[in-house]
Design a protein around this nucleic acid. Structure first.
Lengths: 333, 333
DNA sequence: TTGTACGCGTTATCAT
DNA sequence: ATGATAACGCGTACAA
């Protein structure tokens, strides 16, 4: 592989000049510029980013750490950051941490040693001090993290509260009073937030809170499947099931359909997330849309701002809106 | 950020010694090793991979280029390479090229300049000479590429032919003679292969080939949706629809269900790929399983072999098997 | 076993 | 506008 040295020799100019044309600096004679470009093609020059990094301290790489790309929620988000990164000529490292703190740490160290210009960390598992430490070392954007996070961080959240309220409002409008809720893993901030808001709505509406109507799932469709089964075996089963994500809603649909229960005539099911498949299944899932792609875009854009130090030292926080998507799985009680 | 120089000073040893402990070389006195490790923690040392790359020419990074992570086929594959990369302490760049040659080129150049140790290129769009050129410059594994590719390449394919035969055999066993086929984008190698095998099976079974039974889709569920609609409006509609991927099959199910056609009683639908959702929909989709995760694993492993030069200069090629997954969308004609 | 000097490819700073 | 040269942080000979 040839270097700018070879190019310089071939073109009969100095190293500095070659570097200048490579970086599009204006102060290069047209003639020399052409000579250099010709030489580049001739010697088969390949730019070496690592060498550049040594001087400039910027790698044009960023890290994206997510639970798992296999979770249907994340491909869209990843695509958002990827597209936005592309525009900024950044390349992205994909890291799946499986919500495992040690994997998360390992990836962070790795990314740091690879000199990324910034990190987008989704659903961080590490503790506050560690996050602060990390925030000092690199540009950092946190996605889907507790409301109580300090203002020193740049964060992107979705308004879970709003989403749940939208869902509960709909169910009440359709005459449902017996509303069950299938939550996600309670370790996660947004999961907890969703259940809490569910309970608050119940109270606001003057509906009874029934412990047997709240089941904690783990985001897999299987857990929605068994949760629905369990709920429908109750002496006084709910008329609507609100699940904390779409996958569990689809599982719930599957299990109730198998039991011969008709949706939405006999049971309403409401999801959360609006993953692609929700529109494809039969009946199409009524759900709360999360702007996953936009979350990706916004995260990357915020990271860019953070990298440019545009936001001094006080954090930024943007909260994206949810939206009800009415399809076929919710009907009158 | 501190360097090994700082560590050396703090520990009171030489640069070389620090380097040796960092790289786990055996020839370091235990006492010094401990001193160094303590110093590393004390000065907050952060290893600089770029500097290392300059000497060693290995970055511990690889590039994965796929059409789009948003296509439900790819997250599993990506997860496979990611998991396998993790074991080898490699980090992966995620690149979506949208089956666009220019994007593909841009990513390849970018990856090369970033000094990746290898590239996994799925569904390459560039021409043979370009691939050969690339193959000379870096470790390269091609995934899902034409049978006629030269032996100088390392390739991983799935046996599309086998898959189609498995599907057609099943449909024949269930008494279907009027079998429609919805293909994918005909630019892709495997798409073409699938249609051709479909036609060959028809001939082998002595069934009529009817042009109106073959519709070309584009892998979206929408194209499966309209294709099925179109097919069922024929004067003599098929009794089974075989689609070239699951997404289109799910679209087909959706549209026929909406028309009140029962599956599988009145119409059988058979998919290809076995994406996650196939099992979740109602009726669950009978389909041809592709080992997507394993493809990812194998690609990465082959790339490792290629990086180590284990396979001299003659290419390697492994073809993974498909498997019929019988669920609820295929019944007797 | 440990220390030293040099090279890796690029950019920044000067001086011209 | 251009050229020469010193950094950047690490690995690796080779010498001690």
């Amino acid at each position: 592989m040839s270097t700018i040295k070879d190019v310089a020799r071939e073109a009969g100019v100095s190293l500095g000049t070659v570097s200048n044309v490579l970086n599009g600096k204006p102060n290069v004679k047209k003639e020399n510029k052409e000579k250099v470009q010709k030489a580049i093609r001739k010697v088969g020059f390949q730019y070496n980013m690592a060498a550049s990094f040594l001087r400039t301290k910027t790698s044009k790489n960023i890290g994206l750490i997510i639970p798992s790309i296999t979770n249907p929620y994340y491909p869209e988000l990843a695509r958002g950051v990827s597209d936005s990164a592309r525009i900024a000529s950044l390349t992205v490292f994909l890291c799946n941490d499986d919500r495992d703190v040690s994997k998360e740490h390992r990836y962070v160290d790795e990314l740091l040693s690879k000199g990324v210009d910034g990190i987008i960390l989704v659903k961080p598992q590490m503790n506050l001090t560690e996050l602060q430490e990390l925030n000092r070392h690199t540009a950092l954007v946190l996605v889907d993290v507790g409301e109580d996070i300090g203002t020193e961080f740049h964060v992107i959240n979705v308004c879970d509260e709003q989403g749940i309220i939208q869902g509960m409002t709909l169910l009440r409008q359709y005459g449902h009073k017996k509303i069950a809720f299938v939550s996600g893993l309670l370790e996660s901030y947004s999961s907890k937030c969703r259940v809490q808001t569910y309970r608050r709505c119940l109270a606001d509406y003057g509906f009874d809170y029934r412990p047997e109507y709240v089941i904690s799932g783990n985001y897999d469709w299987q857990s929605g499947y068994t949760a629905a089964r369990q709920l429908m075996q109750l002496d006084d089963p709910p008329t609507a099931i609100f699940t904390s994500n779409d996958l569990m809603a689809l599982g719930a649909i599957k299990s109730t359909l198998e039991k011969g229960i008709r949706i939405p005539e006999e049971l309403s099911i409401l999801g959360f997330d609006d993953i692609d498949m929700s529109n494809l299944c039969t009946p199409a899932l009524t759900t709360i849309h999360q702007p996953k792609y936009e979350i990706g875009i916004e995260s990357m854009n915020m990271l860019l701002a953070c990298m440019n130090g545009e936001t001094p030292k006080n954090g930024m926080k943007t909260i994206l809106e949810t939206r009800l998507v009415f399809r076929d799985s919710v009907g009158y009680a």
